[in-house]
């Protein structure tokens, strides 16, 4: 299976360990991820400002994948959201497709509405499949308690995601965690948003939103949070110490990207998965494994 990997803005600069581990694990599982250097911003941050511009940015990226005959595999949930939405709209709204194609033509590009978009984790869940994943496990992580954060745009709006997992009772991440042998921790605030989208508008509210979940997960005695989005990573990883300081609390909650958890279970070394390059270094966790 071959897909174009869409890195987005944050991953290739700030979450290299996510990119590294995803590519590493994909290779092992027979999923070939092709880089397209001309990809730009997905368009998500522009949607609030100028809908048409956001749609054109997304359509341009879709056109680049279509040129190569590839579907898109994303790492960031926000990219997943806008690319899926635009792919869905252009595939179902002919008038919009015509208008978009006309503008893309001015850039020497064309798009005919064929590209499908899936988050990397959804590809693992739906296309690689839990059975293949279980077969690839060499070192079951039964010493770990892992709480998954689904985030918002991985699942919602559910209509454009073919309702592959129920947004009110999601289970794909927990099942993927269980497949590695780790204990999937259930917790009350599982479905809550990280607050990342309003960090620049109201930092206090955004950090309070993230804090609620950090508190909840810590209380449940999880060893780590499983993340699949660099935006969420900003909130729970990069801002964890700030939240702790602002609210006068303490956390020791490393964040892991799902391909890192899976990679560890597949027997890949933590160096190859970039674990020590994560925003919170998972020393205690790695001590458990050796």
């Amino acid at each position: 299976m071959k897909m174009a990997v869409f890195l987005g803005c944050t991953v290739p600069v700030r979450n290299l360990s996510y990119e590294l581990s995803a590519k590493r694990v994909a290779g092992e599982l027979g999923l070939e991820l092709v880089d397209i250097p001309e990809f730009s911003c997905c368009g998500y941050p522009i949607k609030s400002v100028h809908h048409e511009t956001a749609y054109l940015l997304a359509a341009r990226n879709l056109a680049l994948a279509e040129e190569r005959g590839l579907d898109i595999c994303t790492l960031c949930s926000a990219c997943t959201s806008v690319l899926t939405e635009v792919s869905y709209e252009l595939a179902t709204n002919e008038a919009l497709l015509d208008a978009t194609s006309e503008t893309l033509g001015m850039l020497g590009k064309k798009y005919s509405g064929k590209v499908r978009v899936k988050h990397f984790v959804r590809v693992l869940y739906e296309d690689v499949g839990l059975k293949s994943i279980e077969r690839a496990i060499k070192r079951p992580l039964d010493m770990f308690r892992i709480a998954s954060h689904y985030g918002c745009h991985y699942l919602k709006p559910s209509k454009i995601y073919d309702r592959f997992d129920h947004p009110e009772a999601p289970e794909s991440l927990d099942r993927l965690v269980s497949a590695t042998g780790a204990f999937a921790v259930d917790y009350r605030t599982k479905k809550d948003c990280c607050g990342g989208a309003i960090l620049g508008v109201d930092e206090e509210t955004a950090l309070s939103m993230a804090r609620a979940k950090l508190d909840d997960i810590s209380d449940r005695g999880a060893d780590a949070i499983n993340l699949i989005c660099p935006f969420c990573s900003v909130m729970y990883g990069a801002n964890q110490r700030k939240i702790a300081a602002n609210h006068n609390v303490k956390y020791d909650l490393p964040i892991l990207y799902y391909p890192q958890i899976l990679g560890l279970a597949m027997g890949i070394s933590h160096e190859e998965l970039g674990l020590m390059q994560n925003p919170i270094r998972p020393r205690a966790l790695l001590a458990k494994i050796s």
């Binding site: 609030s48 400002v49 989208a197 309003i198």
Partner: peptide
């Protein structure tokens, strides 16, 4: 209007299919 975190929780639950985050985007536009 800039405070919507676009989490889509309301979008999923709205009994009248108002699609609130998209409405907020429309207002911001």
């Amino acid at each position: 209007i800039w405070l919507c975190a676009t989490c889509y929780t309301c979008h999923e639950r709205c009994p009248q299919d108002v699609r609130i985050p998209e409405v907020m985007n429309a207002l911001k536009n």
